[in-house]
Design a protein around this nucleic acid. Sequence first.
DNA 1: CGACACCTTGAAGAGGTTCAAGAAATGTGG
DNA 2: CCACATTTCTTGAACCTCTTCAAGGTGTCG
Lengths: 239, 239
Amino acid sequence: MQVQAIQVACSNCNLRELCMPVDLTETDVAKIDQLVQTRRKIKRGQALFTAGDPFTSLYAIRTGFFKTSVVTDGGLDQVTGFQMAGEIMGLDGIVNQVHRCDAIALEDAEVCVMPFERMEELSREVNALQHHVHKIMSREIVREHSVMLLLGSMRAEERLAAFLLNLAQRLHARGFSRSEMILRMKREEIGSYLGMKLETVSRTFSKFVDDGLILVNQRHVQILDADGLHRIVHTAQVD
Amino acid sequence: MQVQAIQVACSNCNLRELCMPVDLTETDVAKIDQLVQTRRKIKRGQALFTAGDPFTSLYAIRTGFFKTSVVTDGGLDQVTGFQMAGEIMGLDGIVNQVHRCDAIALEDAEVCVMPFERMEELSREVNALQHHVHKIMSREIVREHSVMLLLGSMRAEERLAAFLLNLAQRLHARGFSRSEMILRMKREEIGSYLGMKLETVSRTFSKFVDDGLILVNQRHVQILDADGLHRIVHTAQVD
DNA sequence: CGACACCTTGAAGAGGTTCAAGAAATGTGG
DNA sequence: CCACATTTCTTGAACCTCTTCAAGGTGTCG
Protein backbone atom coordinates (compact mmCIF):
# COMPACT_ATOMS: atom_id res chain seq x y z
CA MET A 1 0.00 0.00 0.00
CA GLN A 2 1.43 3.31 -1.07
CA VAL A 3 1.00 6.07 1.46
CA GLN A 4 2.57 9.45 1.31
CA ALA A 5 2.60 12.76 3.07
CA ILE A 6 0.54 15.42 1.44
CA GLN A 7 1.78 18.19 -0.78
CA VAL A 8 -1.36 20.14 -1.51
CA ALA A 9 -3.69 21.43 1.22
CA CYS A 10 -7.44 21.21 0.64
CA SER A 11 -7.55 24.98 0.56
CA ASN A 12 -5.27 24.96 -2.48
CA CYS A 13 -6.73 21.92 -4.19
CA ASN A 14 -8.34 22.49 -7.55
CA LEU A 15 -11.02 19.96 -6.64
CA ARG A 16 -11.95 21.88 -3.53
CA GLU A 17 -15.43 22.90 -4.60
CA LEU A 18 -16.18 19.33 -5.57
CA CYS A 19 -15.38 17.63 -2.31
CA MET A 20 -15.24 20.30 0.38
CA PRO A 21 -17.70 22.91 1.60
CA VAL A 22 -17.42 26.43 0.29
CA ASP A 23 -17.84 29.70 2.20
CA LEU A 24 -15.54 28.93 5.09
CA THR A 25 -13.98 31.44 7.41
CA GLU A 26 -10.20 31.54 7.44
CA THR A 27 -9.96 29.70 10.72
CA ASP A 28 -12.31 27.01 9.45
CA VAL A 29 -10.16 26.61 6.36
CA ALA A 30 -7.12 26.14 8.57
CA LYS A 31 -8.90 23.44 10.55
CA ILE A 32 -10.06 21.57 7.51
CA ASP A 33 -6.58 21.58 6.08
CA GLN A 34 -5.69 19.37 9.06
CA LEU A 35 -8.14 16.73 7.94
CA VAL A 36 -6.21 15.19 5.08
CA GLN A 37 -2.80 14.14 6.36
CA THR A 38 -2.12 11.40 3.85
CA ARG A 39 -2.76 10.40 0.31
CA ARG A 40 -2.77 6.94 -1.15
CA LYS A 41 -1.84 5.90 -4.66
CA ILE A 42 -3.71 2.97 -6.12
CA LYS A 43 -2.56 1.18 -9.25
CA ARG A 44 -5.07 0.21 -11.90
CA GLY A 45 -6.77 -3.00 -10.91
CA GLN A 46 -5.88 -2.63 -7.24
CA ALA A 47 -8.42 -2.26 -4.43
CA LEU A 48 -8.63 0.81 -2.24
CA PHE A 49 -10.67 -1.32 0.14
CA THR A 50 -12.68 -4.50 -0.10
CA ALA A 51 -15.75 -5.81 1.67
CA GLY A 52 -14.83 -6.89 5.17
CA ASP A 53 -12.01 -4.38 5.63
CA PRO A 54 -12.33 -2.38 8.85
CA PHE A 55 -13.68 1.09 8.23
CA THR A 56 -11.53 3.98 9.35
CA SER A 57 -11.70 6.68 6.71
CA LEU A 58 -13.59 8.20 3.86
CA TYR A 59 -11.69 8.74 0.65
CA ALA A 60 -11.87 11.66 -1.75
CA ILE A 61 -10.65 10.90 -5.24
CA ARG A 62 -7.92 13.23 -6.35
CA THR A 63 -7.11 11.58 -9.65
CA GLY A 64 -8.25 8.40 -11.32
CA PHE A 65 -11.42 6.45 -11.68
CA PHE A 66 -13.02 3.76 -9.51
CA LYS A 67 -15.80 1.25 -9.48
CA THR A 68 -17.53 0.04 -6.34
CA SER A 69 -19.25 -3.31 -6.25
CA VAL A 70 -20.97 -5.65 -3.82
CA VAL A 71 -20.53 -9.40 -3.94
CA THR A 72 -22.78 -12.03 -2.38
CA ASP A 73 -21.80 -15.34 -0.88
CA GLY A 74 -23.61 -16.85 -3.85
CA GLY A 75 -21.04 -15.23 -6.09
CA LEU A 76 -23.36 -12.60 -7.53
CA ASP A 77 -21.57 -9.41 -8.36
CA GLN A 78 -23.16 -6.00 -8.74
CA VAL A 79 -21.35 -2.80 -9.64
CA THR A 80 -22.97 -0.10 -7.51
CA GLY A 81 -21.24 2.91 -9.01
CA PHE A 82 -18.38 4.51 -10.89
CA GLN A 83 -16.55 7.33 -9.12
CA MET A 84 -14.32 10.07 -10.47
CA ALA A 85 -12.28 13.02 -9.20
CA GLY A 86 -13.84 14.93 -6.33
CA GLU A 87 -16.23 12.16 -5.34
CA ILE A 88 -16.27 10.49 -1.95
CA MET A 89 -16.04 6.75 -1.29
CA GLY A 90 -16.46 4.64 1.81
CA LEU A 91 -19.79 5.90 3.16
CA ASP A 92 -21.13 2.36 3.36
CA GLY A 93 -18.60 1.53 6.06
CA ILE A 94 -19.93 3.88 8.70
CA VAL A 95 -22.86 1.80 9.98
CA ASN A 96 -20.92 -1.19 11.18
CA GLN A 97 -17.35 0.05 11.01
CA VAL A 98 -16.79 -2.40 8.16
CA HIS A 99 -16.71 -1.81 4.44
CA ARG A 100 -19.53 -3.55 2.63
CA CYS A 101 -18.27 -3.21 -0.91
CA ASP A 102 -15.07 -3.29 -2.94
CA ALA A 103 -13.55 -0.12 -4.39
CA ILE A 104 -11.33 -0.95 -7.35
CA ALA A 105 -9.26 1.54 -9.32
CA LEU A 106 -10.02 1.35 -13.04
CA GLU A 107 -7.00 3.52 -13.77
CA ASP A 108 -4.03 4.60 -11.69
CA ALA A 109 -5.44 6.80 -8.98
CA GLU A 110 -4.71 8.89 -5.96
CA VAL A 111 -7.08 9.46 -3.06
CA CYS A 112 -7.10 11.77 -0.05
CA VAL A 113 -7.53 9.82 3.18
CA MET A 114 -10.00 11.45 5.58
CA PRO A 115 -10.03 9.65 8.95
CA PHE A 116 -13.67 9.54 9.91
CA GLU A 117 -13.21 10.07 13.64
CA ARG A 118 -11.33 13.22 12.78
CA MET A 119 -14.18 14.27 10.52
CA GLU A 120 -16.70 13.79 13.29
CA GLU A 121 -14.57 15.85 15.67
CA LEU A 122 -14.13 18.64 13.15
CA SER A 123 -17.83 18.52 12.25
CA ARG A 124 -18.69 19.52 15.80
CA GLU A 125 -16.56 22.62 15.50
CA VAL A 126 -17.14 23.60 11.90
CA ASN A 127 -20.84 23.76 11.11
CA ALA A 128 -20.21 24.00 7.40
CA LEU A 129 -18.29 20.73 7.47
CA GLN A 130 -21.02 19.04 9.46
CA HIS A 131 -23.63 20.06 6.96
CA HIS A 132 -21.34 19.12 4.12
CA VAL A 133 -21.00 15.57 5.41
CA HIS A 134 -24.76 15.31 5.66
CA LYS A 135 -25.16 16.59 2.13
CA ILE A 136 -22.65 14.13 0.72
CA MET A 137 -24.50 11.22 2.25
CA SER A 138 -27.88 12.54 1.20
CA ARG A 139 -26.61 13.07 -2.33
CA GLU A 140 -25.49 9.46 -2.45
CA ILE A 141 -28.93 8.33 -1.32
CA VAL A 142 -30.59 10.42 -4.04
CA ARG A 143 -28.16 9.05 -6.63
CA GLU A 144 -29.02 5.52 -5.63
CA HIS A 145 -32.72 6.29 -5.96
CA SER A 146 -32.12 7.23 -9.56
CA VAL A 147 -30.21 4.00 -10.14
CA MET A 148 -33.15 2.11 -8.67
CA LEU A 149 -35.41 3.93 -11.10
CA LEU A 150 -33.12 2.99 -13.94
CA LEU A 151 -32.87 -0.66 -12.93
CA GLY A 152 -36.49 -1.00 -11.97
CA SER A 153 -38.31 0.72 -14.77
CA MET A 154 -36.14 1.25 -17.82
CA ARG A 155 -35.30 -0.96 -20.76
CA ALA A 156 -31.81 -1.61 -22.12
CA GLU A 157 -31.62 1.31 -24.54
CA GLU A 158 -32.96 3.75 -21.97
CA ARG A 159 -30.47 2.55 -19.38
CA LEU A 160 -27.46 2.88 -21.61
CA ALA A 161 -28.53 6.29 -22.91
CA ALA A 162 -29.00 7.52 -19.35
CA PHE A 163 -25.64 6.10 -18.39
CA LEU A 164 -23.78 7.82 -21.22
CA LEU A 165 -25.45 11.15 -20.56
CA ASN A 166 -24.66 10.92 -16.87
CA LEU A 167 -21.01 10.13 -17.50
CA ALA A 168 -20.68 12.92 -20.05
CA GLN A 169 -22.27 15.40 -17.69
CA ARG A 170 -19.97 14.51 -14.82
CA LEU A 171 -16.90 14.61 -17.01
CA HIS A 172 -17.96 17.94 -18.41
CA ALA A 173 -18.35 19.31 -14.87
CA ARG A 174 -14.65 18.45 -14.49
CA GLY A 175 -13.58 20.38 -17.52
CA PHE A 176 -13.57 17.56 -20.09
CA SER A 177 -15.41 17.48 -23.36
CA ARG A 178 -19.15 17.26 -23.13
CA SER A 179 -19.33 14.89 -26.07
CA GLU A 180 -16.19 12.78 -26.12
CA MET A 181 -14.95 10.32 -23.56
CA ILE A 182 -12.81 7.32 -22.85
CA LEU A 183 -14.67 4.66 -20.92
CA ARG A 184 -12.57 3.39 -18.08
CA MET A 185 -14.61 0.23 -17.58
CA LYS A 186 -15.29 -2.80 -19.73
CA ARG A 187 -18.61 -3.78 -21.23
CA GLU A 188 -19.11 -6.36 -18.54
CA GLU A 189 -18.82 -3.73 -15.80
CA ILE A 190 -21.21 -1.39 -17.57
CA GLY A 191 -23.56 -4.33 -17.88
CA SER A 192 -23.32 -5.19 -14.21
CA TYR A 193 -24.06 -1.61 -13.24
CA LEU A 194 -27.00 -1.38 -15.63
CA GLY A 195 -28.43 -4.83 -14.97
CA MET A 196 -27.79 -6.24 -18.41
CA LYS A 197 -25.38 -8.69 -20.02
CA LEU A 198 -22.22 -7.52 -21.72
CA GLU A 199 -23.53 -8.74 -25.07
CA THR A 200 -26.58 -6.54 -24.68
CA VAL A 201 -24.38 -3.58 -23.84
CA SER A 202 -22.35 -4.21 -26.97
CA ARG A 203 -25.42 -4.63 -29.16
CA THR A 204 -27.01 -1.49 -27.79
CA PHE A 205 -23.83 0.48 -28.49
CA SER A 206 -23.98 -0.82 -32.05
CA LYS A 207 -27.60 0.19 -32.37
CA PHE A 208 -26.83 3.71 -31.18
CA VAL A 209 -24.07 3.89 -33.77
CA ASP A 210 -26.42 2.69 -36.53
CA ASP A 211 -28.91 5.34 -35.44
CA GLY A 212 -26.27 8.05 -35.68
CA LEU A 213 -26.42 8.88 -31.97
CA ILE A 214 -22.83 8.09 -31.08
CA LEU A 215 -19.50 6.92 -32.47
CA VAL A 216 -17.82 4.01 -30.75
CA ASN A 217 -14.27 2.84 -31.12
CA GLN A 218 -13.61 0.37 -28.34
CA ARG A 219 -13.66 2.49 -25.22
CA HIS A 220 -13.62 5.75 -27.04
CA VAL A 221 -17.16 7.11 -27.28
CA GLN A 222 -18.29 10.27 -28.98
CA ILE A 223 -21.80 11.60 -28.55
CA LEU A 224 -23.16 12.95 -31.83
CA ASP A 225 -26.76 13.57 -30.80
CA ALA A 226 -27.22 14.25 -27.11
CA ASP A 227 -30.82 15.30 -27.66
CA GLY A 228 -31.50 11.98 -29.30
CA LEU A 229 -30.14 10.18 -26.25
CA HIS A 230 -32.24 12.36 -23.97
CA ARG A 231 -35.27 11.52 -26.04
CA ILE A 232 -34.60 7.82 -25.59
CA VAL A 233 -34.37 8.23 -21.82
CA HIS A 234 -37.55 10.22 -21.61
CA THR A 235 -39.44 8.03 -24.01
CA ALA A 236 -39.47 5.81 -20.96
CA GLN A 237 -43.16 6.39 -20.53
CA VAL A 238 -45.78 4.93 -18.35
CA ASP A 239 -48.34 3.31 -20.70
CA MET B 1 -52.33 18.22 8.20
CA GLN B 2 -52.73 16.85 11.68
CA VAL B 3 -50.14 18.05 14.14
CA GLN B 4 -50.20 17.49 17.84
CA ALA B 5 -48.14 18.05 20.93
CA ILE B 6 -46.26 15.04 22.10
CA GLN B 7 -47.26 12.69 24.88
CA VAL B 8 -44.37 10.26 25.02
CA ALA B 9 -40.75 11.39 25.30
CA CYS B 10 -38.13 9.53 23.27
CA SER B 11 -36.66 8.27 26.50
CA ASN B 12 -39.91 6.49 27.28
CA CYS B 13 -40.71 5.37 23.76
CA ASN B 14 -40.82 1.65 23.16
CA LEU B 15 -39.21 2.20 19.76
CA ARG B 16 -36.27 3.97 21.31
CA GLU B 17 -33.64 1.42 20.44
CA LEU B 18 -34.84 1.36 16.87
CA CYS B 19 -34.59 5.04 16.09
CA MET B 20 -32.41 6.63 18.75
CA PRO B 21 -28.89 5.96 19.98
CA VAL B 22 -28.42 3.86 23.07
CA ASP B 23 -25.95 4.37 25.92
CA LEU B 24 -26.68 8.01 26.62
CA THR B 25 -25.87 9.88 29.77
CA GLU B 26 -28.82 11.32 31.68
CA THR B 27 -28.13 14.82 30.48
CA ASP B 28 -27.90 13.64 26.90
CA VAL B 29 -31.23 11.87 27.26
CA ALA B 30 -32.75 15.10 28.50
CA LYS B 31 -31.41 16.97 25.50
CA ILE B 32 -32.65 14.43 23.00
CA ASP B 33 -36.09 14.51 24.54
CA GLN B 34 -36.21 18.12 23.32
CA LEU B 35 -35.79 17.02 19.75
CA VAL B 36 -39.26 15.71 19.04
CA GLN B 37 -41.75 18.43 19.86
CA THR B 38 -44.52 17.33 17.54
CA ARG B 39 -46.05 14.29 16.02
CA ARG B 40 -48.07 14.06 12.84
CA LYS B 41 -50.86 11.66 12.05
CA ILE B 42 -51.18 10.54 8.44
CA LYS B 43 -54.25 8.78 7.12
CA ARG B 44 -53.90 5.81 4.84
CA GLY B 45 -53.29 7.01 1.30
CA GLN B 46 -52.12 10.45 2.41
CA ALA B 47 -48.65 11.83 1.79
CA LEU B 48 -46.27 12.75 4.59
CA PHE B 49 -44.33 14.70 1.99
CA THR B 50 -44.06 14.70 -1.78
CA ALA B 51 -41.27 15.48 -4.22
CA GLY B 52 -40.77 19.22 -4.37
CA ASP B 53 -41.82 19.92 -0.80
CA PRO B 54 -39.29 22.01 1.11
CA PHE B 55 -37.20 19.90 3.45
CA THR B 56 -37.27 20.82 7.10
CA SER B 57 -37.36 17.63 9.12
CA LEU B 58 -36.64 13.97 9.27
CA TYR B 59 -39.46 11.71 10.35
CA ALA B 60 -39.35 8.66 12.59
CA ILE B 61 -42.25 6.29 12.14
CA ARG B 62 -44.04 5.64 15.38
CA THR B 63 -46.90 3.57 14.01
CA GLY B 64 -47.99 2.64 10.53
CA PHE B 65 -46.40 1.71 7.27
CA PHE B 66 -45.11 3.82 4.38
CA LYS B 67 -43.85 3.56 0.86
CA THR B 68 -41.45 6.02 -0.73
CA SER B 69 -41.30 6.48 -4.47
CA VAL B 70 -39.69 8.65 -7.09
CA VAL B 71 -41.50 9.85 -10.18
CA THR B 72 -39.96 11.16 -13.40
CA ASP B 73 -41.30 13.84 -15.67
CA GLY B 74 -41.83 11.01 -18.16
CA GLY B 75 -44.35 9.54 -15.76
CA LEU B 76 -42.20 6.62 -14.68
CA ASP B 77 -42.79 5.59 -11.11
CA GLN B 78 -40.41 3.63 -8.92
CA VAL B 79 -41.06 2.55 -5.35
CA THR B 80 -37.74 2.99 -3.55
CA GLY B 81 -38.68 1.43 -0.24
CA PHE B 82 -41.23 0.37 2.34
CA GLN B 83 -40.79 1.76 5.84
CA MET B 84 -42.14 0.59 9.17
CA ALA B 85 -42.04 1.58 12.85
CA GLY B 86 -38.72 2.93 14.05
CA GLU B 87 -37.40 3.71 10.58
CA ILE B 88 -36.39 7.17 9.43
CA MET B 89 -37.69 8.97 6.34
CA GLY B 90 -36.68 12.16 4.60
CA LEU B 91 -32.93 11.70 4.23
CA ASP B 92 -33.12 12.44 0.52
CA GLY B 93 -34.17 16.02 1.28
CA ILE B 94 -30.95 17.11 2.96
CA VAL B 95 -28.80 17.73 -0.14
CA ASN B 96 -30.90 20.43 -1.72
CA GLN B 97 -33.34 21.27 1.03
CA VAL B 98 -36.07 19.73 -1.10
CA HIS B 99 -37.69 16.32 -0.91
CA ARG B 100 -36.97 14.21 -3.96
CA CYS B 101 -39.52 11.49 -3.40
CA ASP B 102 -43.04 10.94 -2.14
CA ALA B 103 -43.74 9.29 1.22
CA ILE B 104 -47.22 7.79 1.27
CA ALA B 105 -48.86 6.11 4.24
CA LEU B 106 -50.09 2.61 3.36
CA GLU B 107 -51.99 2.45 6.63
CA ASP B 108 -52.95 5.07 9.19
CA ALA B 109 -49.72 6.25 10.67
CA GLU B 110 -48.08 8.52 13.16
CA VAL B 111 -44.60 9.99 12.81
CA CYS B 112 -42.29 11.94 15.10
CA VAL B 113 -41.16 15.17 13.52
CA MET B 114 -37.44 15.83 13.98
CA PRO B 115 -36.49 19.32 12.74
CA PHE B 116 -33.20 18.82 10.99
CA GLU B 117 -31.59 22.10 12.06
CA ARG B 118 -32.30 21.09 15.60
CA MET B 119 -30.71 17.71 14.94
CA GLU B 120 -27.57 19.33 13.60
CA GLU B 121 -27.35 21.59 16.64
CA LEU B 122 -27.84 18.71 19.04
CA SER B 123 -25.39 16.55 17.10
CA ARG B 124 -22.65 19.03 17.91
CA GLU B 125 -23.32 18.62 21.61
CA VAL B 126 -24.18 14.96 21.84
CA ASN B 127 -21.55 12.82 20.14
CA ALA B 128 -23.73 9.74 20.28
CA LEU B 129 -26.45 11.52 18.34
CA GLN B 130 -23.99 12.75 15.77
CA HIS B 131 -22.71 9.26 15.17
CA HIS B 132 -26.24 7.93 15.15
CA VAL B 133 -27.25 10.27 12.33
CA HIS B 134 -24.23 9.13 10.35
CA LYS B 135 -25.11 5.52 10.93
CA ILE B 136 -28.71 5.98 9.83
CA MET B 137 -27.61 7.50 6.56
CA SER B 138 -24.92 4.91 6.00
CA ARG B 139 -27.41 2.13 6.71
CA GLU B 140 -29.73 3.55 4.09
CA ILE B 141 -26.88 3.57 1.58
CA VAL B 142 -26.08 -0.05 2.34
CA ARG B 143 -29.75 -0.99 2.06
CA GLU B 144 -29.92 0.63 -1.34
CA HIS B 145 -26.86 -1.29 -2.46
CA SER B 146 -28.69 -4.50 -1.71
CA VAL B 147 -31.70 -3.30 -3.68
CA MET B 148 -29.39 -2.56 -6.59
CA LEU B 149 -28.05 -6.09 -6.32
CA LEU B 150 -31.57 -7.41 -6.33
CA LEU B 151 -32.69 -5.32 -9.30
CA GLY B 152 -29.48 -5.76 -11.22
CA SER B 153 -28.71 -9.43 -10.86
CA MET B 154 -31.69 -11.44 -9.65
CA ARG B 155 -34.61 -12.99 -11.47
CA ALA B 156 -38.24 -12.67 -10.50
CA GLU B 157 -38.43 -15.60 -8.08
CA GLU B 158 -35.23 -14.62 -6.36
CA ARG B 159 -36.41 -11.05 -5.96
CA LEU B 160 -39.74 -11.96 -4.45
CA ALA B 161 -38.20 -14.53 -2.12
CA ALA B 162 -35.66 -11.97 -0.92
CA PHE B 163 -38.42 -9.43 -0.46
CA LEU B 164 -40.58 -11.72 1.66
CA LEU B 165 -37.68 -12.77 3.84
CA ASN B 166 -36.63 -9.17 4.36
CA LEU B 167 -40.13 -8.11 5.35
CA ALA B 168 -40.52 -11.06 7.70
CA GLN B 169 -37.20 -10.37 9.34
CA ARG B 170 -38.00 -6.70 9.93
CA LEU B 171 -41.44 -7.49 11.28
CA HIS B 172 -39.99 -10.12 13.55
CA ALA B 173 -37.50 -7.57 14.89
CA ARG B 174 -40.56 -5.59 15.95
CA GLY B 175 -42.11 -8.43 17.85
CA PHE B 176 -44.40 -9.82 15.15
CA SER B 177 -44.52 -13.35 13.88
CA ARG B 178 -41.54 -14.49 11.93
CA SER B 179 -43.70 -16.41 9.49
CA GLU B 180 -47.03 -14.65 9.16
CA MET B 181 -47.72 -11.19 7.84
CA ILE B 182 -50.21 -8.84 6.32
CA LEU B 183 -48.86 -7.05 3.29
CA ARG B 184 -49.68 -3.40 3.45
CA MET B 185 -49.00 -2.77 -0.23
CA LYS B 186 -50.65 -3.97 -3.39
CA ARG B 187 -49.12 -6.24 -5.99
CA GLU B 188 -48.41 -3.31 -8.23
CA GLU B 189 -46.36 -1.59 -5.53
CA ILE B 190 -44.40 -4.76 -4.81
CA GLY B 191 -43.80 -5.02 -8.52
CA SER B 192 -42.59 -1.47 -8.80
CA TYR B 193 -40.17 -1.98 -5.95
CA LEU B 194 -38.88 -5.25 -7.37
CA GLY B 195 -38.75 -4.16 -10.98
CA MET B 196 -41.43 -6.52 -12.24
CA LYS B 197 -45.03 -6.26 -13.41
CA LEU B 198 -47.91 -6.91 -11.04
CA GLU B 199 -48.92 -9.98 -13.05
CA THR B 200 -45.48 -11.45 -12.56
CA VAL B 201 -45.68 -10.78 -8.83
CA SER B 202 -49.02 -12.56 -8.71
CA ARG B 203 -47.78 -15.50 -10.76
CA THR B 204 -44.68 -15.85 -8.63
CA PHE B 205 -46.78 -15.86 -5.46
CA SER B 206 -48.85 -18.64 -7.01
CA LYS B 207 -45.75 -20.61 -7.90
CA PHE B 208 -44.43 -20.33 -4.34
CA VAL B 209 -47.80 -21.61 -3.10
CA ASP B 210 -47.68 -24.55 -5.53
CA ASP B 211 -44.19 -25.35 -4.31
CA GLY B 212 -45.35 -25.37 -0.71
CA LEU B 213 -43.17 -22.45 0.30
CA ILE B 214 -45.89 -20.06 1.41
CA LEU B 215 -49.62 -19.68 1.84
CA VAL B 216 -51.27 -16.65 0.26
CA ASN B 217 -54.69 -15.29 0.91
CA GLN B 218 -54.83 -11.88 -0.66
CA ARG B 219 -52.52 -9.79 1.47
CA HIS B 220 -52.17 -12.36 4.16
CA VAL B 221 -48.96 -14.30 3.62
CA GLN B 222 -47.66 -17.19 5.67
CA ILE B 223 -44.16 -18.53 5.20
CA LEU B 224 -44.13 -22.31 5.40
CA ASP B 225 -40.56 -22.97 4.33
CA ALA B 226 -38.18 -20.11 5.04
CA ASP B 227 -35.19 -22.29 4.20
CA GLY B 228 -36.70 -22.97 0.82
CA LEU B 229 -37.02 -19.24 0.19
CA HIS B 230 -33.45 -18.70 1.30
CA ARG B 231 -32.34 -21.40 -1.08
CA ILE B 232 -34.08 -19.63 -3.94
CA VAL B 233 -32.32 -16.37 -3.12
CA HIS B 234 -28.93 -18.01 -2.88
CA THR B 235 -29.42 -20.16 -5.92
CA ALA B 236 -28.77 -16.86 -7.59
CA GLN B 237 -25.38 -18.07 -8.71
CA VAL B 238 -22.82 -16.74 -11.02
CA ASP B 239 -22.22 -19.48 -13.62
C1' DC C 1 -76.11 -4.98 -2.84
C1' DG C 2 -73.82 -2.94 -6.44
C1' DA C 3 -69.68 -0.48 -8.00
C1' DC C 4 -65.00 -0.31 -7.91
C1' DA C 5 -60.45 -1.64 -6.96
C1' DC C 6 -57.53 -5.41 -6.72
C1' DC C 7 -55.93 -9.95 -7.83
C1' DT C 8 -55.39 -14.19 -10.69
C1' DT C 9 -54.72 -16.74 -14.80
C1' DG C 10 -54.16 -17.71 -19.83
C1' DA C 11 -52.09 -17.02 -24.40
C1' DA C 12 -49.21 -14.58 -27.48
C1' DG C 13 -45.27 -11.81 -28.17
C1' DA C 14 -41.05 -8.99 -27.26
C1' DG C 15 -36.78 -8.07 -25.17
C1' DG C 16 -32.92 -9.85 -23.32
C1' DT C 17 -30.06 -13.96 -22.36
C1' DT C 18 -27.32 -17.80 -23.57
C1' DC C 19 -24.20 -20.19 -26.32
C1' DA C 20 -20.92 -19.99 -29.81
C1' DA C 21 -17.54 -18.25 -32.98
C1' DG C 22 -14.57 -14.97 -34.68
C1' DA C 23 -12.29 -10.30 -34.68
C1' DA C 24 -9.78 -6.75 -32.53
C1' DA C 25 -6.91 -5.02 -28.99
C1' DT C 26 -3.53 -5.71 -25.28
C1' DG C 27 0.10 -7.81 -22.89
C1' DT C 28 4.29 -11.07 -22.59
C1' DG C 29 8.50 -13.19 -23.44
C1' DG C 30 12.04 -14.26 -26.44
C1' DC D 1 10.27 -5.74 -32.46
C1' DC D 2 7.72 -9.67 -33.55
C1' DA D 3 5.07 -13.97 -32.43
C1' DC D 4 1.95 -15.76 -29.40
C1' DA D 5 -1.34 -15.88 -25.60
C1' DT D 6 -4.92 -13.60 -23.36
C1' DT D 7 -8.43 -10.54 -22.72
C1' DT D 8 -12.08 -7.86 -24.51
C1' DC D 9 -15.49 -6.84 -27.87
C1' DT D 10 -18.84 -7.88 -31.63
C1' DT D 11 -22.28 -10.45 -33.95
C1' DG D 12 -25.50 -14.35 -35.03
C1' DA D 13 -29.10 -17.75 -33.82
C1' DA D 14 -31.93 -20.23 -30.62
C1' DC D 15 -34.13 -19.97 -26.45
C1' DC D 16 -36.35 -18.35 -22.24
C1' DT D 17 -38.17 -15.19 -19.01
C1' DC D 18 -41.03 -11.70 -18.36
C1' DT D 19 -44.39 -8.53 -20.40
C1' DT D 20 -48.53 -7.41 -22.66
C1' DC D 21 -53.22 -7.89 -23.51
C1' DA D 22 -57.42 -9.81 -22.14
C1' DA D 23 -60.93 -11.83 -19.33
C1' DG D 24 -62.87 -13.35 -15.24
C1' DG D 25 -62.78 -13.79 -10.17
C1' DT D 26 -62.59 -11.96 -5.45
C1' DG D 27 -62.87 -8.65 -1.89
C1' DT D 28 -64.28 -4.21 0.00
C1' DC D 29 -66.81 -0.17 1.13
C1' DG D 30 -70.22 3.15 0.78
